[in-house]
């Protein structure tokens, strides 16, 4: 019961953070400005609220939630606290896709970037799924995933070596993640993928609990290990792929949020962890997004700076506190 109340409090906080994300920024916004914007006022303030802040804050909310969930699934499945959404090579494959698009001079449009990142990730997902359905153990899959990451990374570096310097510059800028490029038109896509992933993840709670004791134990409990494995890989990779396509590589959220959530809620039951991780991931990412664009405004820090600088001390302090209590 205590957990449910705590969860609800965090959920309300996370909704407040979205509200804060829309209100806080270089242009100070009052409640009246916000109502004006919603009523279709056409000044630049309203435009910024509706077309710059709203999409980036909502995207940070959904993106953070999805990345955190993806990290939780993979950490449990691999029984490795260092696993995260990018461990199966999705981010390297996405960067490779973008590298092909930008460095070969095909174009520079926003949707070209999103599409090429998506295409790269999908290629990696198909590869990883084929491997996941054949290998015997989680460790093999983990190592193969890491190796795939190195291969895509190497291909990307070959492209960089032979590319024009201005194109390389633009490509490098892509690799710093930010939710700033997301527009209102992108939100329905991000929202539907997120919703889909969340609803499937609910069915994984029980098999995940069994997997905490290892694949053999899960098998003896009657869990279809192969099907669960494919489902975990598919859901976590699709999450990582979509968010990476729209926002680039966002460090730390997927890795740290599951730890933070486990430490706060003191549980490893996935029926409680899955919704809590989703809400924590959303809240942390929105706060980090606000932090990164306001702390030295008008200059914007990369969001990964904020996620790491805020997230890492939280994890450290939670871990140390837990030690002291026990």
């Amino acid at each position: 019961m205590k957990r449910v109340i705590f969860f609800l409090i965090l959920f309300v906080f996370s909704l407040f953070s979205v509200f804060a994300g829309i209100m806080i920024g270089s242009v100070s916004v009052s409640l009246k400005d916000m109502l004006n914007a919603l009523n279709g006022s056409e000044d630049i303030k309203s435009y910024i609220i509706l077309n710059v802040r709203l999409p980036r804050t909502v995207a940070a909310y959904l993106g953070g939630a999805t990345l955190a969930l993806s990290g939780l699934l993979l950490q449990t499945y691999f029984r490795n606290p260092l696993a995260g959404p990018y461990v199966l090579g999705i981010s390297s494959a996405a960067s490779f896709g973008v590298a092909l698009y930008v460095l070969s001079g095909i174009g520079i449009g926003y949707y070209g970037l999103v599409g090429s990142a998506m295409a790269g990730s999908l290629a990696a997902i198909v590869l990883v799924l084929i491997i996941a359905s054949r290998v015997k153990s989680a460790v093999t899959l983990l190592i193969i995933g890491l190796m795939l990451g190195y291969i895509f990374g190497a291909l990307e570096r070959i492209l960089i070596t032979f590319a024009e310097s201005e194109a390389v510059h633009q490509f490098v800028l892509w690799t710093f993640g930010s939710f700033s490029g997301v527009t209102c038109e992108d939100l329905p896509i991000i929202f539907s993928v997120t919703l889909l992933v969340f609803s499937f993840a609910v069915f994984l709670a029980k098999p995940l609990n069994a997997l905490l004791m290892g694949e053999d134990y899960a098998k003896s409990m009657g869990v279809n290990v192969k099907l669960t494995r494919v489902a975990i890989v598919l859901l976590s990779s699709i999450s990582a792929a979509v968010i990476t396509a729209f926002a680039g590589i966002i460090a730390f959220i997927g890795l740290a949020t599951p730890h933070i959530t486990r430490l706060i809620f003191r549980t490893s039951d996935h029926r409680a962890l899955i919704p809590s991780v989703i809400v924590c991931g959303a809240l942390i990412t929105v706060l980090c997004d606000i932090f990164s664009r306001t702390i030295v405004a008008p200059i914007e820090l990369p969001i990964s700076v904020a996620t790491s600088l805020i997230g890492a001390p939280i994890v450290i302090s939670l871990i140390l506190r837990r030690k002291r209590i026990s």
Partner: peptide, 11 residues
């Protein structure tokens, strides 16, 4: 050069 927010550029 500096990295600034899109809202500052528009503003």
């Amino acid at each position: 050069s500096a990295k600034v927010t899109l809202e500052d550029l528009l503003l």
